[in-house]
Structures are given as C-alpha cells and as structure tokens.
C-alpha cells in the first residue's frame, strides 16, 4: 500500500484548517472601527473599552495577536463569550453533537432518496422514471431550504399535528422523541442534497454501464443483475463516494439554515445567535468548528476513496 496519498491528503487538510484560522481571525479584525467599541456598543465607557482591548490583546501587533489566539485555540481555549462570559469552547462543545447527528441523518435520507432514483434512471435512460427523476433533480435544487422547512412545519406539524415543529431531545434521553424531532429537519436538508446527488449518481452509473468491461460481462452471458451489482455498481461507487465528499460543505450550508428554521440547538443556530448579539468570539469559534468538521468529514471520505479503489497510488 502507498501511504503517500494518505499523507498528502492529511497535509492539505492541515493547511486548510490553518487557513480557516486565519480567515476566522481576520473576521474580527475587519470589524469597522474599534472591535472592542463595536462589541460593547455605543454607550460603553472608555475604561470598559480599554479594559476589553487589553483583555483581547488588541493593543499588540497583529501577527502576535494571531499567534497568541492560535496558540490558545490549539489548546482548546477559544476565549469567553462577550454576552455571558462563559467559555466559548464549552458552549460549542454541546452543539457539535446535535449538528453532527442532523448532518448524518440528512445525508442518510438524501442518499436513500437519491440512490434508487439515480440507479433506476441510469439503468433505463429515456424512460418515464428517468425523465421524472431528471425533472425532480432540476426542480429540487431550486427549492429554498428554509421555505421547504416552513411548508413542512405548516402542513405536517400545524395542520396534521404529526410531528413536533421544532426542538430537540438528546438521543440518550429518549430515542423515540429524538427521532420525532429529527425527521422534519433532516428530511428538509436531505431532500435538497438528494436532488443534486441523484444527478451525479445517474451520470456516474451511466459512465460505468457504457464501459468495456460491462459489455464483456454481458457478452459472456452473466445475468443482468450480476452485471449491474458486481461489475457496474462496485466501480460506480468510487465516483459516487467522491461526489458525496464534495457535497459535504453544501450539506452543512443547508444544515445551518435548517437549524434556524427548526430551532435545532446546533452550531449553525449558535452562529446566528452570536451574530445577533455581536458576540464575535462565539461566532469565530462556531465558524472554526464547523469548518474543521467539514474538513474532517472530507478527509474521511478521501481516505474511504483510497480504500475503495486499489488503483490509487497517487504521487
């Protein structure tokens, strides 16, 4: 096995995360005017502003500020929330679980929709199913995520009274209640990503079905089922996994929106609350953690790709 590929991917993930720390750091630096003044509001006293400047280290050179901040962040210290003085890291920690759960269930629902539709439309190109599937994927990407969430709440929760319109129960507390709360938000985020995935799964499968080795498999008299499952699908999976990886960032974008619509206690809603309260350290932390999460999932997918495709021996 060639571990150079793994090493290379690991290295580029580290570079990306470092880059994100710079972006997140700069975010606060470019707040117009004095960040301390902006954070405290127009009516704060000069002493309060000076005190905050000192506490945040704003009076030091910018590179030193960044390195200090980075050093603390690496040790898990992301500073204190401006609003309630709590540790930012502690606040974020409790939000990672719900966001991650929502992302994974959304991904699962999205794939459960996209996989069969994409497969059938690739196996029967030009059929009614194919046309409907193509139209579905075209229309699906145009639906605003938050609007779909709102409509589901109106119909499923308010009118039919089937599922709760918002909120969260930890899975350890009550798995049934957790499930009831997660279905609507996960379906909302999953539906939009399904419409994109359907298209990619269809074209990945079509590529493979037209390959020579699939023709050979058919020519030697294999049953169609065996051709599709053993020869075509296994190879198409490689491309499909790559595409899912590329979709992860977009999926998390949808998760942020869904969390707000369904009052889901995740990182996205926390970030938006931080914006409303001008709580910049909290916003910094939330953006950083989400970006690290996305990068790690991407890295995981890349390594999965490495395991799935024995041909990969990247230089």
């Amino acid at each position: 096995m060639n571990y150079q590929y793994v090493l290379q991917r690991l290295l580029s993930a580290i570079v990306v995360v470092l880059g994100v720390t710079i972006v997140v750091f700069i975010i606060v630096q470019i707040v117009p005017g004095d960040p301390a003044r902006v954070m405290l509001g127009p009516y704060a006293s000069d002493e309060a502003v000076l005190g905050l400047r000192e506490r945040l280290g704003l009076d030091r050179p910018i590179l030193e500020q960044y390195l200090l901040w980075l050093g603390r962040a690496a040790r898990g210290d992301l500073g204190q929330s401006l609003l309630n003085g709590q540790e930012v890291a502690a606040q974020l920690w409790g939000r990672i679980g719900p966001s991650f759960e929502l992302a994974m269930v959304s991904l699962a629902i999205g794939l459960a929709i996209a996989f069969p539709i994409g497969m059938i439309s690739a196996l029967k190109p030009g059929s009614v199913v194919d046309v409907v599937a193509t139209l579905f994927s075209q229309i699906g990407v145009s639906v605003p995520t938050f609007w779909m969430g709102i409509l589901l709440v109106i119909v499923v929760s308010l009118n039919l009274g089937l599922l709760p319109p918002s909120g969260y129960t930890p899975i350890a507390e009550d798995p049934g209640d957790w499930l009831a709360h997660i279905i609507l938000p996960a379906f909302t985020a999953g539906f939009v990503s399904a419409s994109i995935q359907t298209r990619f799964i269809r074209s990945a499968m079509l590529d493979v079905l037209n390959a020579n080795y699939v023709q050979t498999a058919r020519a030697k008299g294999l049953a169609e089922r065996a051709v599709v499952v053993n020869h075509a699908l296994r190879n198409a999976l490689i491309n499909i996994v790559t595409i899912i990886g590329l979709q992860i960032t977009a999926l998390f974008s949808g998760i942020v929106i869904v969390e707000v619509v369904f009052s889901w206690p995740g990182l996205g809603r926390l970030a938006l609350n931080a914006v409303e309260e001008r709580d910049y350290p909290l916003l910094q932390g939330a953006v950083l953690v989400v970006a690290v999460m996305v990068t790690m999932v991407n890295l995981f997918v890349d390594l999965l790709y490495f395991l799935l495709d024995p041909r990969i021996e990247y230089v």
Binding site: V15, V16, G19, V23, S253, V256, G268, A291, V294
Partner: peptide, 11 residues
Amino acid sequence: DVLYAIPAILL
C-alpha cells in the same frame, strides 16, 4: 480551498 471549506451560508 480555505474559503470553500466554510459552508457558503455560514461564511
């Protein structure tokens, strides 16, 4: 790549 690693809406 760095800009791309942050979900669009969050950025």
